[in-house]
Design a protein around this nucleic acid. Sequence first.
DNA 1: TTTTGATGTCGGTTCTGACT
DNA 2: AGTCAGAACCGACATCAAAA
Length: 295
Amino acid sequence: MHPLYLKKNTKSFEQSFQMQHARVPHTYDTWHYHQELELNAIIRGTGTRFIGDHVGAFSDGDTVLVGSNLPHVWRNDKEYYLEREDLQAELMNFFFLEDFAGKDFFQLPELQPIQNLLRTATQGIRIFGRTGEIVQRKMKKVFRLTAGERVIALMQILNIIAHSDELELLASPGFIHSYQASNTARINKVYNFIMNNFLENISLEQAADVASMNPAAFCRYFKRVTQKSFVQFLNEIRVGYACKLLLDEKLTVSQICYESGFNNLSNFNKQFKATTNKTPQEYKFQHQNSFSSKN
DNA sequence: TTTTGATGTCGGTTCTGACT
DNA sequence: AGTCAGAACCGACATCAAAA
């Protein structure tokens, strides 16, 4: 089983892009990809987002542009699966093809920044700060517009993002390069296996089995495709998840170590520092400070 | 006293190069 | 892509120091 390919009917006789505003118990939680770009805005909800090899926390106001064929999923925190009526996720999505405005439209010299944005989006782009707020506000307004106005509004939104510096690239260039170069069923099976099981003990042998290879051949294959060793890739995914848990004040560092799939604290500290250049405590302290200074 | 982080040791696992 | 051997890395465990 590899990330689900979703075929969307974004372009029809009635509309050139698709949009939705939903209140749901939890977000769609299957790792998937599609040809359409997706502008995803979380109005309300917390959890973990996985975009390519990026793992990060999301909360109210999270806004991300996901590029064409980039595998992704937003998973709400566990509490959202308890069917509590007071806890719902609210989100908006716009789905559009790169050529939704016409094959060569974005090649106009005036629209180069947007064309660059759509290309860069293959890594996934988080839109934060004031730009994130403006984009979400404008997305909400789109639902009240007429068909023609909607297309213009989407152009405006893309233009705002394209000219902002409040953007963060999410998936690593190495992942994107390898993913595009070798978008095969085999590597997709492995990625999906890792994304679904990184909180458990995963052995090299299990992963090699998923790829139908022997461990030595798998090591070489995985390194060639991802430019990282299997264990290094796995550790980075786990550290990303630990970063999200560190923002939750209820858990201690040692609880987070085990919650994120590590089996011992000293190795967790080592891997965390190697990935983020900070100790878990430093990370927690800095991010709590930056959140409290924003609020 | 408890929690957290840093460090060292050792055995097992993973990675890599050479060869096929 | 498989096999093999040696190197490199990781995890488990123990210990210690600092802070709360």
